[in-house]
Design a protein around this nucleic acid. Structure first.
Lengths: 150, 150
DNA sequence: TATTGTTATACTCTATAACTATA
DNA sequence: TATAGTTATAGAGTATAACAATA
């Protein structure tokens, strides 16, 4: 309950992280919608892409979409015939989700397009600058993931 | 329409940015909800905090919430008596939004609490590390903001 | 008993377009 | 005509809790 007052440097970092992501969202959301997908749907497609499929549970963990919500998102992808959702023979409580051929085609089209659109923003950065930035974001993520609830 | 294939380094950067923000959201969302606010409502309160107020238009630009959506968000904050929304005497098309005393109290309580909760993740980082990280995120944001639609 | 996923509920955000009123 | 904001519409995501089926 008693929170230490965050240091100015940390506040600044949080503000910049939020702003950077806002800018990212603006770039990506338009592009994602041009492929007829919502952000959540794109996340699911991108997560399933280049895999042999996975359970709802795994998908939920990777996308951070809670199970109740995921059911609805998958329902809509099913309607669009982008995925299949079949009972796992080994554990019949579990459902196995896989991209359809159509879903895979969309993945192979949409993912590079969205990524490519964003990547143009970083055209002026060198390989080593990009690598440094990635490493730093990785470090920030690790720090946040390992900071558990009190 | 023809997109350059994004370089691996850029893809990696995008992936890390998304993941870092996911981790951030997980940390912040729980905390925000403990103050009885949604993410959008918190954004508005945080934007209005430490200001003399601003028009809906400005608020919309700062929070990236579109005007139609903003009306609903402000309606709910109004219900909770956290803001006032009054006609601007100078331009009577415009509405001026200000935190109430109650809204300001919540801002002064919730903002440091949320920021403090997150900042603990970065406790182990030095001032100069934090500054470097902020500068880098700032650079990434600038790059994305200046990358306009083709 | 615990786990996987669905269903039900209720709310919030979202984009969009038509609209009102002011300028 | 243009701008600021509301309203209407229709969807989509969200958390939560109760539930069914399976382990």
């Amino acid at each position: 309950m008693t929170q230490a007052i965050p240091l100015p440097r940390t506040r600044e970092l949080i503000r910049e992280l939020v702003r950077a992501y806002q800018a990212f969202e603006q770039l990506s959301n338009n592009r994602i919608r041009q492929h007829g997908l919502t952000h959540a749907q794109f996340d699911v497609i991108a997560t399933l892409g280049n895999t042999a499929g996975m359970s709802c549970k795994t998908l939920s963990e990777k996308t951070l979409i809670t199970k109740g919500t995921l059911t609805g998102v998958l329902d809509r992808l099913l309607e669009k015939q982008l995925i299949t959702r079949t009972v796992d023979a080994n554990d019949r409580r579990s459902l196995f989700v896989v991209l359809t051929e159509q879903g895979d085609a969309l993945f192979r089209q949409a993912f590079p397009d969205v990524a490519g659109h964003i990547s143009r923003a970083f055209d002026h950065m060198s390989d080593s600058e990009l690598a440094t930035a990635s490493a730093l974001l990785h470090q920030l993520r690790q720090a946040m993931e390992h900071s558990q609830e009190p």
